[in-house]
Amino acid sequence: NKFNKEMRNAYWEIALLPNLNNQQKRAFIRSLYDDPSQSANLLAEAKKLNDAQA
Score class of each variant (00 low, 15 high):
L16V: 09
N41K: 12
Q38N: 12
N19E: 05
A54C: 10
R30G: 11
Q53G: 04
A40P: 09
S31V: 13
A10Y: 02
K5Q: 07
N19G: 05
F28K: 04
E6P: 02
A46Y: 03
N50H: 03
Q24L: 05
Q23F: 10
Q38A: 07
A46N: 00
N4D: 15
L49N: 03
L20N: 00
Y11C: 13
A40K: 12
M7F: 11
D51G: 08
N9C: 12
E13L: 14
N4M: 03
E6M: 07
K5L: 01
A44N: 11
Y33A: 03
A52P: 03
L49E: 05
N1V: 04
N4P: 15
N19C: 06
A46H: 00
S39Q: 06
F3D: 15
F3R: 15
N21L: 09
L42M: 12
Q53W: 08
E6F: 02
N1H: 03
E45V: 12
L49P: 00
Q38I: 06
N21Q: 11
L16K: 14
Y11W: 06
E6C: 12
K2A: 13
N21E: 10
A44M: 10
A10C: 03
R30C: 11
S37V: 06
K2S: 14
K2W: 12
P36W: 05
L17E: 01
D35Q: 05
A15S: 15
S31C: 08
N21Y: 04
N21I: 09
A27Q: 10
S39A: 14
R8V: 13
F3G: 15
W12P: 00
A54Y: 07
L43C: 14
R30Q: 10
N50P: 01
F3V: 15
N19W: 06
L42W: 07
D35C: 07
A52D: 08
A15G: 09
A46M: 01
A44I: 09
L43W: 02
Q38L: 14
N1Q: 04
D34Y: 05
D34Q: 06
L49M: 09
W12H: 12
L16G: 12
Y11F: 14
R8D: 04
Q38V: 08
S39R: 15
L16T: 08
F3I: 15
Q53K: 12
Q23I: 13
N41P: 03
A52T: 08
Q24N: 03
Y33W: 15
D34V: 14
A27M: 09
L16A: 13
N19T: 11
Y11S: 07
N9R: 15
S39D: 02
A52I: 10
Q53Y: 06
K2G: 15
K5H: 02
W12E: 05
Q23N: 10
R8Q: 12
L17T: 02
S39P: 10
N19S: 06
M7Q: 05
Q23T: 08
A40R: 13
P18H: 06
Y11H: 08
K2I: 14
L20S: 00
Q23V: 07
Q38M: 11
K47A: 07
Q23K: 08
K5F: 01
L43F: 02
L42F: 05
Q53H: 06
A27E: 10
A27Y: 12
K25C: 05
E45H: 08
P36Q: 04
N21P: 06
A54M: 07
R8H: 10
L32H: 00
F28Q: 02
I14D: 00
Y33T: 07
D51Q: 06
S37T: 11
Y11Q: 12
K47G: 03
I14H: 00
A27S: 09
Y33C: 13
L32Y: 01
A46V: 04
E6R: 01
A10I: 06
A46E: 00
R26L: 13
Y33N: 02
E13I: 14
F28S: 04
Q24E: 08
A10L: 06
A46Q: 00
A40N: 12
K48M: 07
K2D: 15
A40H: 12
A27G: 10
N41F: 09
N1Y: 00
P18M: 04
L49D: 03
I14N: 00
N21S: 04
Q53S: 11
F28W: 02
L20D: 00
L43T: 13
A10F: 05
Q24P: 00
K25G: 00
W12K: 13
E6N: 03
F28I: 07
E45R: 13
A10R: 03
S37H: 02
M7W: 14
A10K: 02
E6L: 05
N22F: 15
L49Q: 06
L20I: 06
L43R: 15
S37F: 05
N4E: 15
Q38G: 11
N4Q: 13
W12N: 13
Q24Y: 03
R26G: 13
L20P: 00
E45W: 14
D51R: 11
N50Q: 06
D35A: 10
L17K: 07
F28D: 00
A54E: 10
K25T: 02
L43A: 12
Y11R: 12
I29N: 02
N50I: 01
P36C: 03
P18C: 09
K47I: 05
N9Y: 14
I14E: 00
L16S: 12
N50Y: 01
I14Q: 00
S39W: 08
Q23E: 14
A10S: 04
D51V: 08
A46C: 03
Q24R: 04
Q53A: 11
K47W: 04
R26Y: 13
K5D: 14
A15W: 09
Q24D: 07
Q53V: 07
K25F: 10
P36N: 03
L17H: 10
N22T: 09
K25L: 04
N4T: 05
N50D: 07
A15Y: 13
M7I: 05
L16C: 13
K47P: 00
L17Q: 04
L20K: 00
R30N: 13
K5W: 02
K47F: 04
Q23R: 07
K25A: 02
E13P: 01
D35Y: 04
K48F: 09
R26I: 14
K48N: 11
R26S: 15
L49K: 10
Q53N: 05
F28T: 03
N50L: 01
A52S: 11
K5Y: 02
A27D: 12
Q23P: 09
P36Y: 07
K2L: 04
A54N: 09
S37M: 11
D35K: 08
S39F: 06
A40M: 11
W12Y: 14
N22H: 14
L42E: 02
A44V: 10
K47Q: 04
N21V: 06
Q23H: 12
Q24T: 08
L43K: 08
K25Q: 02
Q23S: 07
A40Y: 05
R30L: 09
N19F: 08
F28H: 03
A15E: 06
A15I: 15
A40D: 07
S31F: 13
Q23L: 12
A46R: 00
K48L: 10
D35M: 06
L16F: 11
A44K: 12
K25M: 03
E13Q: 08
N1F: 00
K48S: 09
I14R: 00
L42H: 05
A27I: 07
Q24G: 01
A10E: 01
N22A: 13
Q24H: 03
A10H: 03
L42P: 01
K5P: 08
A15V: 13
F3P: 15
K2P: 08
A10D: 02
F28G: 01
N50E: 02
L49A: 10
K5I: 02
L49R: 05
N1R: 04
Y11I: 14
L32V: 04
N19H: 08
I14L: 12
L32K: 00
S39I: 14
N41I: 13
W12T: 08
L49V: 07
S31G: 06
D35F: 05
A15C: 11
